[in-house]
């Protein structure tokens, strides 16, 4: 059985005189290249034009805040455990009096670092997070000259208050359904 109709049975036959002249074949080749000459270039002229990202693109992470602007992350460490590349580290801190506007719960991440050179952008941290605090976004991790610059701290990860990051693109119906499923342990 053939998979495509393009396959040809190879026969080792003697070439005819016309075939040995190669000129008809060369002419055929010339016509093929000539057709390509007028084809549209497949190029996307990058700095002027960017390709459209998929809505569920897995790019740079964001640490979300809740509606009142308090950080959602409670430094439970599930993301770090889930991370197959071991890119995430954090230290927990205890919320003090008067910090209720900044942190949603009594425990919060004092530091939260993702090594973007280790990260494989699989999205397992997002899946593991019980507080819907970490999401992957359609933003790209910028290039840099040093490796040190790729360890992103809270300054780069937490979304700014005045410039919230939209992650609804990643909240597909399947994801929302999954989050509702209380049988799965971390959704309790």
């Amino acid at each position: 059985m053939t998979l495509t109709n393009r396959s040809k049975v190879v026969v080792e036959k003697k070439m005819t005189f016309l075939e040995r002249m190669y000129l008809p074949a060369i002419l055929g080749g010339i016509m093929i290249t000539f057709r390509h000459f007028f084809k549209r270039a497949a190029t996307v002229r990058y700095p002027e034009k960017t390709r459209e990202f998929s809505k569920i693109y897995r790019g740079m992470h964001v640490l979300k805040r809740d509606e009142k602007g308090a950080e959602r992350c409670t430094a439970c460490g599930l993301c770090a455990v889930a991370c197959p590349a071991e890119a995430i580290t954090m230290t927990a801190g205890e919320r003090q009096k008067g910090e209720e506007h900044a942190y949603r719960e009594e425990k919060y991440a004092a530091t939260y670092e993702i090594n973007m050179l280790r990260c494989i952008f699989c999205g397992l941290c997002e899946e593991a997070c019980p507080k819907e605090a970490i999401f992957l976004t359609d933003r790209i991790v910028k290039t840099d000259y040093g490796r040190g610059e790729f360890v992103f701290g809270k300054d780069k990860l937490v979304e700014p208050l005045d410039n919230r990051v939209d992650v609804t693109g990643r909240q597909t119906p399947a994801v929302l359904e999954f989050k509702k499923n209380k049988v799965l342990s971390h959704n309790k």
Partner: peptide
């Protein structure tokens, strides 16, 4: 440029 056109590219621009 011609090489680019033959290969469905844009070439130096």
């Amino acid at each position: 440029k011609v090489a680019a056109f033959f290969q469905d590219r844009v070439g130096p621009n």
